[in-house]
Write a protein that binds this DNA or RNA. Structure first.
Lengths: 246, 246
DNA sequence: AATTTTCATTTGTCAGACAATTAATCGTCT
DNA sequence: AGACGATTAATTGTCTGACAAATGAAAATT
């Protein structure tokens, strides 16, 4: 392992890249121990703090884990789906909030991707998935619920739907699309009427899933997408009108 | 900003979390400057190297950027879609390679998600998208192409298809699913015959897109999914048979 | 043989220093 | 007065050396 000394500086970034490449190319295997920080600083001919900064970078991406003590050190981490979920959600949420993505665009993405689970979910859904969806639907119909709790339950419902497709890769990819919508949804005030409509559609989706009717799931999801979008649009319009009046 | 001194250690992780939370909650706005490393080390009552490790963690997630010099410092970074692509691809690739996800599962996820673009792409595709897809299809039909180059072109084709949906959120989410497949695809040896079939399906997809026929796009994508899976399965079977013979 | 103690290794943290970079400030000259 | 160059201050990047804390292994003791 060597690094380019006349590169645009930032040694720790270069070292992180070198190690990351070694992991991605398979030179470093899962659970393999990296050289100690002292050895790495010799190999790369930099100081230990610089090596440490590089290792922290990799740690932030869950590529390595560290352990103190005699047999400790930095180890190549087996990246688990659960670890990746969190990062995916963080990144997706920030992407939406920092790039003024419109509600419509985010909503379109979420439902378009989610609809791709309809067939698989109707084939593979278990009683567990269905029970979760029923429970969340029921919670959503309770009167005293805050808008935040309603949205959180909405996310839980849709995650169950996605998980019902029984494909961890899909679940991972959609975690971001589904969860990142919550901050946007939280900005909407749901009337009793609109909640009722959404709960109704959720029930229909659950029913269709129970009967393993993929086409119906898809149809109701599509209806839900349309309704959510219309609802958001009317709220945005109302706010703009109120703004114009002031 | 304060941190818990009797937490399970790793000060730099705690500090990183504190700053990350401040960014995600909106306490720190895009392009806002963080206090200097010296100030942060005072505020958190830790040493500068510890603060630096925390900042490197955040930098690895593209949450901040740093600049040297008099007016330099660490700034909250506007997370761009392009930056997020890279992380998404890295994470997805490692997820697949480290969790022995089967080719079938990954393939299913990729095509299920990609099919959700069919309708949108057929409505919004521009001449540019079409031209890219035609160009890649043409490249794929050239005889001397290595398997790696063939797969790379395949990825480029499908990215153009995804981008044609004209929704940056979808493009971002699917970047991982599409690109992370390449290492798996690279392990397949494509016969002249199978290449021909794939190129044929690609052409049909492009044709359908040209005519803005979403249903046809979806159908051909589905056919491509089936064919890819069958192809991979036959290769896996052949390898196992060869293995049994030895 | 089991238990305790010691020890070596390794990461986590700290203090202080210097180099490199960069923009603002200050002088100087025209 | 204005343009241009030198100085300066602030800030990140890097290094050195040190000590603390954790932890497993080896040695000593019972």
């Amino acid at each position: 392992m060597k690094i380019d000394p006349n590169s645009p500086a930032d040694l720790s970034a270069q070292i992180a890249k070198a190690i990351r490449d070694a992991i991605m190319s398979g030179d470093l295997l899962v659970d393999e121990r990296l050289p100690s920080e002292a050895e790495l600083s010799e190999q790369f001919d930099v100081s230990r703090p610089t090596v440490r900064e590089a290792l922290k970078r990799l740690g932030a991406q869950s590529l390595i884990r560290t352990q103190r003590g005699a047999t400790g050190g930095a180890f190549v981490n087996r990246l688990r789906f659960e670890d990746a979920y969190g990062q995916q959600i963080t990144t997706s949420t920030l992407l939406l909030s920092m790039n003024d993505v419109s509600f419509g665009t985010a909503c379109e993405a979420r439902y378009a991707l989610e609809r791709s689970c309809a067939t698989l979910a109707s084939e593979r859904r278990t009683a567990d998935h269905l029970a979760t969806m029923r429970a969340e639907t029921h919670r959503q119909s309770q009167p005293g619920l805050t808008d935040e709790a309603f949205c959180a339950s909405d996310v839980a419902f849709h995650r169950a739907l996605v998980d019902a497709a029984g494909n961890p890769v899909i679940s991972y990819q959609l975690a971001g699309a589904v969860e990142a919508m919550q901050p946007l949804m939280n900005m909407i005030t749901f009337s009793a009427r609109s909640r009722e409509t959404i709960v109704g559609l959720h029930s229909q989706i659950a029913d269709a899933l129970e009967q393993r009717d993929g086409a119906a799931v898809d149809m109701h999801l599509s209806a839900l997408a349309d309704y959510t979008n219309t609802l958001a649009q009317s709220i945005i319009d109302a706010r703009q009108a109120a703004k114009a009046n002031n």
